[in-house]
């Protein structure tokens, strides 16, 4: 790519970023505030899950075996579960009462579990427990493929 084109790309990118940072509500266009952000994000999780699930289906269908494939399947399973977990977490976040949090200096320090939903919410907040193994599996799979 020529320098001239690169310069144009950078200028366009900065212009778009500026628009995003200083965006003000405008009546002329649709407003995307409120629950739309969450719904969009949840759709993103669903798409992510479907994407990984389909890939997992293909891996099983193609009977992929050999170095790295076990780890890759572990990655897929973990990332799918992670998506479900975080999807659930986002959903429960909206349902959980702010009173359940003990706030000290505007900072939560404790959480009161009144029911199973609260318990599930607390658990979903520990999503890294699935995300880290998923990434670890992906790394191991890539390492094994690299060696193979």
């Amino acid at each position: 790519m020529s320098d001239r084109l690169k310069g144009k790309g950078i200028r366009c990118g900065l212009f778009v970023l500026g628009l995003l940072l200083y965006a003000e509500p405008a009546l002329a266009v649709q407003h995307h505030g409120g629950a739309e952000g969450l719904i969009s994000h949840q759709i993103g999780h669903i798409l992510f899950t479907l994407g990984m699930a389909f890939l997992l289906f293909r891996v099983y269908q193609d009977r992929k075996r050999g170095a790295g494939w076990f780890e890759f399947k572990g990655f897929l399973w973990c990332i799918i579960l992670w998506n479900i977990m975080t999807f659930t977490g986002h959903w429960l976040d909206e349902l959980t009462s702010p009173a359940s949090f003990t706030i000290v200096n505007q900072h939560p320090v404790a959480f009161t579990i009144n029911n199973l939903q609260d318990a599930l919410f607390y658990f979903t907040r520990l999503d890294h427990l699935l995300l880290l193994p998923a990434l670890f599996f992906l790394l191991k799979a890539l390492q094994k493929w690299g060696k193979a």
Binding site: F101, T102, P108, V109, A110, F111, T112, I113, Y122, R125, L126, D127, H128, L129, L131, L132, L135
Partner: peptide, 18 residues
């Protein structure tokens, strides 16, 4: 009532590791 610290710790350390 359960401490929120494990959540924050997991989030912070997990983010770095992730």
């Amino acid at each position: 009532t359960i401490s929120w610290v494990p959540v924050e710790l997991t989030d912070s350390i997990g983010s770095i590791l992730a």
